[in-house]
Write a protein that binds this DNA or RNA. Structure first.
Lengths: 348, 348
DNA sequence: TAAATTTACACAAACGTTTGCACAACAATC
DNA sequence: GATTGTTGTGCAAACGTTTGTGTAAATTTA
């Protein structure tokens, strides 16, 4: 049997197989899909020919036909940020496992670009959208529009202030609570916190966790031990000075993130303060390198971005594949909070 | 005019617009695409109706029809690695700018999974593929197969040992040359290098750069000043001991990467060696945090992953859009080497 | 042996869009 | 008043695949 050397041009189609075997396309299709109504001999012939011609089903055609793209859109602010790159890693892992494909884009924290991307994703007919909204996003109608088109959205980490949405987010309150609790149990009574700007939810969560831990130990919250820092090095140093000159000098300090921890520790060392001796430090994990450093916080609050990404992707795919809203008036919304957790530094 | 409340179910199609306006689909299509042969009035009517119904062209259908997906596949080993997350960021930026869409997947350095992903990408009919091959990949026929299907591939950073391919990679030789040169100019004559395993191309490049710099200063290469390290902390310490007990004790050390630098510096400090005083350190930039640390290398070789990602994407898109190989027998291959560069530590 | 059932296949429609071609209506030219 | 040209529109095919329905031939049943 000599059928033209497979021309390395256009991919083989089901039609060509049909023509070469002198059977109908439908038979070929069914044969390839092991449909019961096709004879064994025909199946074999078709499959053999398909393999010979390197046939590969055109997914685009199938997706178009079935109105399903088997693709999820993912919009993140910035892939270079380690939190998000860890998250996308988890998202892709789940998508791969569940046989979905990931369409990726970054908003660069630009609300306009984000809006455009959402539009694009809709036109691409993604089966679902996973998004961590940009910092500058302050209108939310486009999400509503997306929702109307019956494509599920799962929000992730940065959640818009809108009702009736699915989301996965971490709660820093629990981790902060644990962190402060841990310090209290170690005997500390004067615990400073270098918190972030007051307009961040993350700052509020930290504050609440702090207060909760204090009151749970029947200690009252001293507001002067919590400073709001702009997270720069200068701001950090200022905050540290504030504490060091405080009438109640903290014996432990919780810092907003690893950068702040770094600045604070460096500054403290320059003043000959013994790290984790004179003052214990606790931070929030966001940088991979921190564990390799000389003077690191004795513990840090972990947010599990990889795990969060997986969870969010799983929820989205569940939503996509759920057995069609059985006319239930009020659908249930996934509001998953991944509790943060205190990780106590490994010795050495 | 009262046409049914837009049912928030299936997206509007061109057909519905046609029916409502009682004109043909072809007219609607042309009107929306501002085809010259459609009357102004009709155009207006169509556009108005399209807007009213929130019409959005079904890209999947168009892609299918035109046999172009306007999508590039990107396969990277590990998104959580900062080199690759910086790269994907650049890739996505270019793709976005040039109106392409990014299909992302990670191989996790698993050759089998990589093969599968390539297969998937082909079935998805991506217009091009960008890939950094996994560490375990040792057969390359699947790339050939891909190539046969006329979909361009651009290899990125980790290049397979195959002829006639497009690639973008960094060359560490130039940066290493600069680094050693820099140290020589500072007066150092005994420069140690903690290199990586010999089987890595990256190790060879470093070695070559080192030798080149030495010979350019009419110094001869002392092999005992270059050790191959397994890049663990223990290995690094061993390497350091080697140097410190050497008859020619190095006054400067080049480390394979930031982790090694960290280990080496930490160990040196534990021996009360003054960093960048008794011994100058130079490393290769791969971790964002390094700049924030107390004792950092005085300089580091930068590979510009973001820039490399952009470059690779640009090349791929050029290949995709090039005016169809005008029957030229031997196509030209892009072999772009992004030279690495020495960045001298910012003061303070 | 006729009827009923099963087996194995073909036909054709459908998905949403673009595009070559045909064609009508009307205006302009000779 | 016949020809040519222009303008605006519709028809139908095409892309690759799946799938409902129709229908011969082969097999079983009565």
């Amino acid at each position: 049997m000599q059928h033209l050397e497979q021309m390395s041009d256009k991919p083989t189609t089901i039609k060509e197989i049909a023509k070469l075997l002198d059977i109908s396309v439908s038979t070929v299709s069914r044969a390839l899909n092991d449909h019961s109504s096709i004879g064994l001999i025909t199946k074999m012939r078709v499959k053999k020919m398909a393999k010979e011609l390197n046939y590969e089903p055109n997914q685009r055609a199938i997706q178009f036909l079935q109105g399903k793209s088997h693709t999820i859109g993912v919009i993140l602010p910035e892939l270079a940020e380690s939190f998000f790159s860890a998250a996308i890693s988890g998202i892709e892992d789940i998508a791969y496992k569940r046989n979905y494909t990931v369409l990726l884009a970054q908003s660069h924290d630009d609300a306009d670009r984000e809006k455009l991307l959402i539009e694009k994703m809709k036109m691409q007919r993604v089966d679902g959208l996973l998004i961590s909204v940009s910092k500058t996003t302050n209108t939310y109608e486009h999400f509503e529009a997306f929702k109307k088109s019956n494509i599920p959205i799962v929000f992730f980490d940065r959640i818009p202030p809108v009702k009736n949405i699915h989301f996965v987010a971490s709660n820093l309150e629990s981790g902060t609570f644990e962190a402060v609790n841990f310090l209290l149990k170690k005997g500390h009574r004067t615990i400073g916190m270098i918190n972030g700007p007051t307009n961040l939810v993350a700052s509020t969560e930290r504050k609440n966790g702090y207060i909760k831990a204090m009151t749970s130990h029947r200690l009252k919250f001293d507001p002067s031990l919590m400073v709001n820092c702009d997270l720069t090095e200068a701001g950090t140093i200022e905050s540290m000075d504030n504490f060091l000159n405080h009438k109640r000098k903290p014996t432990a300090i919780v810092t907003f993130n690893d950068y702040v921890a770094l600045f604070a520790i460096r500054y403290a060392r320059s003043l000959n303060i013994q790290i984790n001796k004179d003052i214990d430090f606790v931070s929030y994990a966001n940088l991979p390198l921190i564990n390799y450093m000389d003077f690191t916080p004795i513990a840090s609050v972990e947010q599990f971005p990889y795990k969060q990404g997986k969870k969010a992707a799983d929820i989205l795919l569940d939503l996509i594949n759920k057995p069609k809203s059985d006319s239930d008036a009020e659908p249930a919304y996934y509001n998953v909070v991944v509790e943060s957790e205190l990780i106590i530094g490994k010795e050495k």
